[in-house]
Design a protein around this nucleic acid. Structure first.
Lengths: 253, 253
DNA sequence: TCATATAGTGTAGAAGGTACAGTGTAAGGC
DNA sequence: GCCTTACACTGTACCTTCTACACTATATGA
């Protein structure tokens, strides 16, 4: 990474600064022909079309009409490019209107899951890393705003966001692999998950699991109603949150 | 993968069959000098000591005193090796005694999180893929057993397991990156997360987030009490589950 | 006009996964 | 007991992909 970026203090990682639009101010020398935005846009286009495996420094560069090494003026490594891609691909969160917090949280979680399912390559790029980009933080912020005024303690909103987004991520991952979305190379997640389990699971060693299989809990014969399952688990979380809010309200009195 | 494995039907992926101990029965020819178990053991040893990056086909082979290509007699690809490693590294779940379901679920979730934190390389190997190995399925089974008899519908136990393990995974991932555990190459998750956010977040655009930052929600000055946070979110989920169980019990009457 | 800092290129190297052909070894048929 | 056959493992070589380095070109300010 040759370019300097204006770190307000000193310790913001270069790529993070650039995700926030802090392009380096340069005098002297040729004008940069690219932007981090144009690069992530190209990379996202490839990932959407061919999957994450199609994203190579060379393929991204080719799409932009530059040499592969040109990208290293904007990005320190492929890792950093992936980080920037994730944020760039993140859509704006639903806006909190005057609705009840519970409705907003439900909409937020569902929208987040849908976003992940719409670009499944996101699931392969550590969707568990703490967000540092502005678009990802928009999601966190809107959720905190929606929860402001219900009487929670400072950190609790953040914890709630963590729990909800974790749930959205794992639901998306599950739905994606049950759809057979995990490509054929990923032998660990075949399409007929329930069928495979049924063949492997011995009732003596796995009493609980084989009972669940027998009841069709893995879509072993019934169609898999993924949205109903998502709603179910989401309801669990929201009920828990509601209980907490009620508790805090009582404490207030 | 040259060896044939006895697929009971036809469609179980070779590596899955082998994870279940179905080693191929061979007549004719030299005795295999390795086992999948010995291979995963070696690979896990490397991952624990040097991190996932240290796990190369060549390094694993070297540790076993074989040539790299020898591994391909047992594993179709490095991907498959990683899949097998995850299952092999999985410890047995807590045993459900006579305790209340809520206590067991809490212990289960905590144990699962601790397991992940004890071998952080697991977090880099898609901890979101549906389990297919026997050890991972032990965890699912024990949870279902603990929930049997509380009156839930068939699939609901599985959904609960999904939600809880998702929460454990994301908590582990968060705790790991806040510990600065994400190695220095991962610029997206630096040690001083709160400090960086504080520098980037503009109160006008991120009102909720900057309020939370001001209140020290990211350990911006206070110490980060990770276990308290874990317990908090877990409580949310368990409260939700409890509400559901109560509901189902009323329906029964 | 020149000095200088920067942007992008080309080439080459390194690392790592894996295909392929070959070598040796053990079981079973004659 | 020999020979065929199937299989385990080795060595080599290749391919892909990331990235370091030296170089060329370009635009600004003195």
């Amino acid at each position: 990474m040759r370019r300097r970026v204006i770190d307000k203090g000193q310790e913001i990682p270069t790529i993070v600064a650039r995700m926030w639009g802090q392009e380096p101010k340069t005098s002297h020398g040729p004008r940069p022909s690219l932007t981090l935005d144009r690069i992530t846009e190209a990379a996202i286009g490839i990932a959407d079309a061919e999957g994450l495996a199609g994203v190579r420094m060379s393929s991204v560069a080719a799409r932009l009409g530059v040499s592969p090494m040109a990208l290293y003026g904007y990005v320190g490594s492929k890792e950093e490019l992936l980080t920037a891609m994730v944020d760039a691909a993140t859509p704006p969160p639903p806006e909190p209107g005057g609705q009840h917090w519970r409705d907003y949280l439900a909409a937020w979680s569902r929208a987040y899951r849908d976003f992940l399912l719409g670009s499944p390559w996101l699931l392969e790029v550590s969707p568990l890393a703490p967000p540092t980009g502005p678009r990802a933080l928009d999601w966190l912020d809107r959720l905190l705003v929606a929860l402001s005024g219900v009487g929670l303690k400072p950190g609790e909103g953040v914890n709630i966001a963590t729990a909800l987004s974790a749930y959205a991520v794992s639901s998306a991952a599950l739905a994606h692999s049950l759809r057979g979305g995990a490509d054929e190379t990923d032998m660990a997640a075949p399409g007929d998950y329930g069928a495979i389990l049924a063949r492997l699971v011995d009732p003596a060693r796995f009493p609980g699991l084989s009972a669940a299989l027998g009841a069709g809990a893995f879509g072993g014969g019934q169609e898999w109603v993924e949205d109903a399952d998502f709603t179910f688990g989401l309801g669990l979380l929201l009920d828990g949150i509601e209980a907490l809010i009620t508790l805090r309200a009582k404490e207030e009195q």
